[in-house]
């Protein structure tokens, strides 16, 4: 079983998911109470406008044929038109994408920088004081609203100590790096409890392995043992854990972008909700799902590339 067929099998699994995801997003219009066209248009719901929307979405056709119409449009790259911005949803999403990708990558990097050392500290002496302190982090962290944490960080690092801007995306690479630090830190701190938990567990498993006992009996000093043997083998689970939680991370960015006024896809979604701009909300929801699926696939492929054992899997 080679790597290519592993990737091929993963791609095959995506087919039913693609149909499922598009169906859920398509079906959202039918969850709107009352006549969807009239509700969406709100005060602009003249009989003519309602009739046009009915025709455009094929609302008077059978459900499956409506879905087919939806898929056909999608395949032509048509995510619908914004009622508020007067632009296509796809061009709106594209122009809002860079800040979101910045946030995801930056937060991913920061969460590794936070979680790996803490997990190492905890795992280096199981059930010691350090371990208990680190294990208390998820207990507090899991119940913390991310937007609340954002306010706390703004209060301390942007208002009291004016080290970082309160909001915005900044300009230029270093401008982004500085402006996006607090938002990314918020997302990373929200994600860390989960990552620390899984990493600590996988490091403990590695520490129990026979090659560690061998290394110990050869007299390899503690720090070297950790850096050369444990960390290396714990990086692979770290990638996997990040991959599994990518959906959580992306969901958090929606909230964080709104708090820090970052012009990303998440803020586009929340603003469109306030404008009752249904086609954009629908399109953005689909884009987020596609993002999760692709990043998961990427994490799986990274896993296959990092761990030679995947080849012999199954």
């Amino acid at each position: 079983m080679g790597r290519m067929s592993f990737v091929g099998r993963r791609l095959l699994q995506l087919i039913p998911v693609a149909f499922g995801v598009t169906f859920i997003v398509f079906f959202m219009v039918h969850l709107i109470p009352g006549d969807p066209a009239a509700s969406i248009l709100g005060i602009h719901a003249t009989p003519r406008a309602v009739a046009i929307l009915h025709h455009e979405w094929g609302l008077n056709r059978p459900l499956l044929s409506q879905y087919w119409l939806f898929l056909d449009r999608l395949l032509h790259g048509n995510l619908g038109y914004s009622l508020y911005y007067g632009q296509s949803t796809s061009s709106l999403v594209l122009s809002h994408l860079p800040p979101t990708l910045w946030l995801i990558v930056y937060a991913g990097v920061l969460s590794v920088l936070i979680s790996v050392p803490l997990a190492m500290i905890a795992a280096s002496r199981q059930d010691g004081v350090r371990d208990h302190v680190v294990r208390a982090v998820p207990l507090v962290g899991l119940g913390m609203p991310s937007f609340w944490l954002a306010f706390l960080l703004i209060l301390v690092f942007a208002i009291k100590v004016q080290a970082f801007p309160v909001s915005g995306y900044g300009s230029g690479f270093f401008g982004h790096l500085r402006s996006m630090f607090l938002p990314s830190l918020t997302a990373a701190l929200a994600l860390s409890p989960v990552v620390i938990r899984s990493l600590r567990a996988s490091m403990l498993t590695v520490l129990g392995a026979e090659y560690i006992t061998t290394a110990r009996s050869k007299g390899v000093p503690g720090h070297r043992l950790f850096l050369r043997h444990v960390l290396r083998n714990a990086v692979i689970p770290a990638v996997t854990v990040l991959g599994i939680n990518i959906g959580f991370l992306i969901g958090t960015t929606v909230i964080i972008e709104e708090v820090f006024a970052i012009p990303g896809v998440g803020q586009l979604m929340i603003n469109s909700i306030f404008q009752r701009d249904f086609p954009v909300v629908q399109g953005v929801t689909l884009v987020f799902a596609v993002m999760v699926v692709l990043l998961n696939l990427l994490a799986d492929m990274a896993y296959a590339a990092l761990d030679p054992r995947v080849r012999f899997d199954r």
């Binding site: 859920i24 929606v254 909230i255 909700i273």
Partner: peptide, 18 residues
């Protein structure tokens, strides 16, 4: 698989919106 493709908050917010 289909449901987990959506980020938790995105789907919850979108559903409550519609």
């Amino acid at each position: 698989d289909t449901v987990v493709a959506f980020p938790f908050y995105v789907l919850v917010i979108a559903l409550v919106f519609v």
